[in-house]
Design a protein around this nucleic acid. Structure first.
Length: 933
RNA sequence: GGGCGGUUAGCUCAGUGGGAGAGCAUCGGCCUUACAAGCCGGGGGUCACAGGUUCAAAUCCUGUACCGCCCACCA
């Protein structure tokens, strides 16, 4: 079978993916050897494949395919994350389009609806991964809300509770008024905004003519103020300390307290204290035993309850505020203060605002009972594991961020007031907690602070307190990241003691992006150590974010997204994967422009055409590809063959080194360089001579080398470009005589995907041959260069004279046919010494001088200019080398080989200068002749 | 406020102590029977700036500027 003239990825990709699947090539059971395992960073079920997933999974797949070929039992566990808030938001938006809210639907119906949605479109993203070529073991696919994983979640929750690492308490937490749920600290992103700083006067209780001027960015929260704090040493306010103020608008009597926390330099040096709606104020409030007045409802609207409690009835003077959301209330407060002439100033002020990482709504510090994980005891061993190198973070710079975060870790708020997720396995006896349960008309209920939870793997049968059997389960669900934290072992069957766990835990590597280092990686390490007693993975490879060519984050709103599916459709998965690998340099963002992919598509095409060349020239048959090498060892190889095999051996070494250290870009680069610029540009061109020599032995030998090198290239490239390499490999195999029979029998034959990865080939190393072929290549380039510079038409053949050291010239003479073919030279003459051709364009390659006679076709003046330029360039270089050698410190202190090389250089430059001078002199003669006809 | 990273050719980026590199773009020449998605050749850079260490610095150290990111309770 010959390969078609051009490569068409469209049908082939699906064909090979199917074939690999049918061959069971993704399952670890089919391989023997050491274990290699990875778990996929589970994409959100809501998602579709974006460029970040593409990069992440391409790198993982490269590792898996490499390790699989290299003899490991590879397990790559795929799956998806239920993504609590994100998914709930998506389904809520769908409902909104139907004019429904989740409240109207009710909890049970809503969850049903989410499940239906996830069933229908939840695996979209995994199908898209298949288009990318991801070699996951699909029989191991998991979902963070699978029954097995739910069991793992309940198990960990109960055990953490038993170990005192879990508690429920009322704390000031980050609240998203849009999602109406608590968030963990890291789920809040801080954004700088241009805001204002309001200066407000709080009059003295006893003497309203005097007052304290406070400065605040959030005037609306003053309704909840319970004190004003000043620095104890601040002269301006000293006399006020201990006195009472009348809180404007509300009329509350609040004290002036002294606290060194207050920054005298900022604003007026007086800080209003709102313990229920500011984290700093909360702490100060706790210290000074201040009242915490919650002025908001769950949607951050001013709620009357606290004021009713305070004043015994709804304060009529505050009527206009009730029910108003934060920013509206802010305007009203500002207006009323203005009216009362208590608003002194409003300055422009830039400051950071915390926003919900899911919906960008400004978060509200809010007092609610929540569940927390005590993280310090979990963090300590997690820090140690990285510090001791039991987990290696690559690039290691990220370890600093990891340590910094872990060492300052705060308790993790894990409860969310949403419906989609793992409902917390805690129950409350309805009878015992009657006064702590608030029921709404719709049947929903809230568990207030002070309620006594019973934590268990399942609902309790009866209350140990009263014996009652009426229980309400905690309505909250767990943070999505709680179940993701268990992913490396929950997906392998934990809490059951499975074979998978025994074989594949700890996993070998985790490939992820830095933006979830704290969300996910850190927590997996804590949980893995806690519940498995061992690290969840050995290596963490952290890759960059994909940005557009301007370095902007890709986002739909900016319209700069590159859709991986569209790209693959257009350029093929292989070109896309190769591009991602080539751009994945460590510690840098990946800036992706579509032209890059196009560029690497050319490489796919180049490989394809090289393969076509090899295949159309193969006459040998009945040799299995795998046996090529054995045959090759018996051959008498010529220097060109030895050279390409030596280069191949070097490339194999570099490729292994690069991939073993997660340097994907270097991997891609080395293979690109070897395939294109060594194999195609030189070896294939040289091979044409042997193939057309008419010498049967030479021809067969060259065919074998071509096939051997191509086959190695295919195996080396397969991890990055699985589809095209498989297609070519199969064609090669068939051409070599194997495969046909099996296909006729309907059996599936060998696949490249499961061939051994090229090993080190020390016997191919031939540095001295490389050196000689290098000379030949340089002389060839010199001739080409002279022709181009002298504008000699490519069709015009020229003769060349070579002058130089005996051994060099002898080698060049024995390979004259290459020079003739590669540089389009008709005749080569050799002079070992003495005479030089008259009137020739000159180049110097090491110890060899290259002359191309000018004849009558060249402008003598141009050649003279060219030589003079070359001469001055060489003189500059010589001067630099001489300066170095003239420096006694250099000669004394530099390494010997460095000095030696400099000396060699000096000699080389001197020779070159001498030659150039001679050539210039001879040109002068011609000029004179020309002038005197 | 703290930390991390970046600054190298027109663009995107490799390169961690000894002669400045790649891809793309550009210019010139080629339809040479694997490939014009190609071949051959060329031009282009005081390696951000200023000091320092060293025989030797794009590379190590210090500082500065600009850009980006992360963390942080200055209202």
């Amino acid at each position: 079978m010959e390969l078609p003239k051009s490569y068409s990825h469209k049908d082939l990709e699906a064909k090979w993916y199917r074939r690999w699947t049918e061959a069971g090539a993704f399952a670890p059971a089919n391989h023997a050897g050491r274990y290699f395992s990875m778990v996929i960073p589970p994409p959100n079920v809501t998602g579709s494949l974006h460029i970040g997933h593409a990069l992440n999974n391409t790198l993982q797949d490269i590792l898996c395919r490499y390790k699989r070929m290299d003899g490991y039992r590879v397990l790559w566990v795929p799956g998806t994350d239920h993504a609590g808030i994100a998914t709930q938001n998506v389904v809520e938006r769908q409902l909104a389009e139907e004019g429904l809210t989740r409240a109207q639907l009710g909890r049970a119906k809503f969850i049903e609806r989410v499940w239906a949605w996830r069933k229908q479109s939840g695996s979209t993203i995994l199908h898209q991964l298949k288009a990318l070529g991801a070699s996951c073991d699909w029989s191991h696919e998991r979902f963070t809300m699978d029954e097995g994983l739910s069991q793992a979640v309940r198990e960990t929750f109960v055990r953490l509770c038993e170990d005192g690492l879990l508690y429920r308490a009322e704390r000031l937490i980050n609240w998203c008024p849009r999602c109406k749920t608590a968030l963990a600290d890291i789920e809040v992103t801080h954004e700088e905004v241009d805001g204002s700083l309001w200066h407000i006067v709080y009059p003295l209780w006893d003497d309203p003519s005097k007052g304290i001027e406070v400065a605040t960015t959030r005037p609306e929260t003053m309704l909840g103020d319970t004190a004003v704090a000043v620095h104890p040493d601040d002269e301006r306010w000293r006399e006020f300390i201990g006195k009472s103020l009348r809180l404007p608008i509300v009329g509350r009597r609040i004290p002036v307290i002294a606290d060194p926390f207050v920054d005298r330099e900022f604003g007026t040096g007086a800080l209003k204290i709102t313990p229920a709606h500011d984290f700093n104020d909360f702490e100060i409030g706790e210290k000074h035993n201040l009242k915490r007045i919650n002025i908001f409802d769950a949607e951050a609207r001013i709620a009357p309850e606290a004021f009713v409690e305070e004043f015994g009835q709804e304060p009529v003077w505050m009527q206009r505020y009730f029910g108003k959301e934060r920013y509206e209330a802010r305007k009203l407060v500002e207006a009323e203060l203005q009216e009362r002439q208590l608003l002194k100033r409003r300055d422009r002020h830039r400051h950071a605002v915390g926003k919900c990482y899911r919906c960008s709504t400004p978060i509200e510090p809010y007092m609610t009972p929540q569940w927390f994980v005590r993280t310090k005891p979990l963090a300590a061993p997690a820090i140690e594991a990285v510090r001791e190198g039991r987990i290696r973070i690559v690039p290691e710079g990220w370890a600093n961020s990891y340590f910094a975060w872990m060492e300052n870790i705060k308790d993790w708020c894990i409860s969310r007031q949403i419906w989609w997720g793992h409902q917390i396995p805690a129950w409350y006896c309805a009878a015992c907690n009657e006064q702590h349960i608030s029921r709404s008309a719709t049947g929903d209920y809230l568990i207030l602070k002070g309620a006594q939870p019973i934590v268990g793997r399942e609902a309790p049968k009866s209350c140990p307190g009263c014996g009652g059997a009426d229980f309400l389960q905690d309505p909250d669900v767990l943070d999505t990241w709680f179940s993701s934290a268990l992913w490396p072992f929950s997906t392998l069957g934990w809490p059951q003691a499975t074979d998978d766990l025994k074989s594949f835990y700890p996993t070998s590597a985790l490939v992820t992006s830095f933006d979830i280092l704290f969300f996910w990686v850190a927590r997996m390490i804590m949980m893995g150590l806690k519940f498995m007693g061992d690290v969840p993975f050995r290596d963490v490879y952290i890759h960059a974010l994909v940005r557009d060519q301007e370095g902007q984050k890709m986002s739909k709103s900016k319209g700069n997204v590159i859709d991986p599916l569209a790209v693959m459709e257009r350029y093929g998965a292989d070109a896309f994967r190769f591009t991602l690998a080539a751009l994945a340099a460590m510690g840098r963002d990946v800036k992706l422009a579509e032209e890059r992919i196009q560029g690497y598509q050319n490489f796919v095409n180049k490989l394809w055409n090289a393969a076509r060349f090899v295949l159309m020239n193969l006459t040998i048959a009945n040799i299995e590809a795998q046996k090529l090498r054995e045959r090759l060892d018996g051959e008498k190889l010529n220097p060109a063959d030895q050279w390409i095999l030596s280069r191949l051996a070097v490339t194999i070494g570099k490729a292994r080194e690069a991939i073993d250290s997660y340097r994907f870009n270097e991997y891609a680069h080395h293979l690109y360089q070897f395939t294109w610029h060594e194999f195609c540009d030189w070896y294939i061109e040289m091979s044409k001579l042997a193939l057309n020599s008419g010498n049967e032995n030479e021809r067969l030998r060259t065919e074998r080398v071509l096939a051997e090198v191509l086959e190695n290239i295919l195996r080396l490239l397969h991890p990055v470009m699985p589809f095209v390499t498989e297609e070519i490999w199969q064609a090669l195999r068939e051409k070599l005589g194997a495969g046909k029979r099996e296909e006729a029998n309907g059996k599936s034959g060998p696949i490249l995907m499961l061939q051994p990865y090229p090993g080190p080939e020390p016997k191919w190393a031939a540095p001295e041959v490389e050196e000689r072929i290098n000379l030949l290549m340089e002389v060839t380039r010199a001739v080409r260069n002279l022709r181009a510079e002298m504008n000699v038409a490519p069709s015009k053949e020229v003769s060349v004279t070579l002058v130089g050291a005996d051994d060099k010239v002898a080698f060049l003479r024995s390979h004259e046919s290459y020079l003739r073919a590669l540089a389009r030279v008709s005749r080569v003459e050799y002079l070992t010494d003495g005479a030089r051709p008259k009137g020739a364009a000159t180049a110097v390659v090491g110890e060899v001088e290259v002359y191309v006679p000018l004849g009558d076709m060249v402008n003598v003046g141009e050649e003279k200019t060219r030589l003079e330029k070359e001469l001055s360039r060489t003189e500059e270089e010589l001067a630099r080398v001489r300066r170095k050698l003239g420096n006694s410190d250099f000669v004394a202190k530099a390494k010997e080989n460095v000095v030696r090389r400099e000396k060699e250089k000096a000699e080389e430059f001197q020779d070159k200068i001498r030659t150039l001078h001679l050539s210039l002199g001879r040109l002068g003669e011609i000029e004179q002749i020309g002038e005197k006809p």
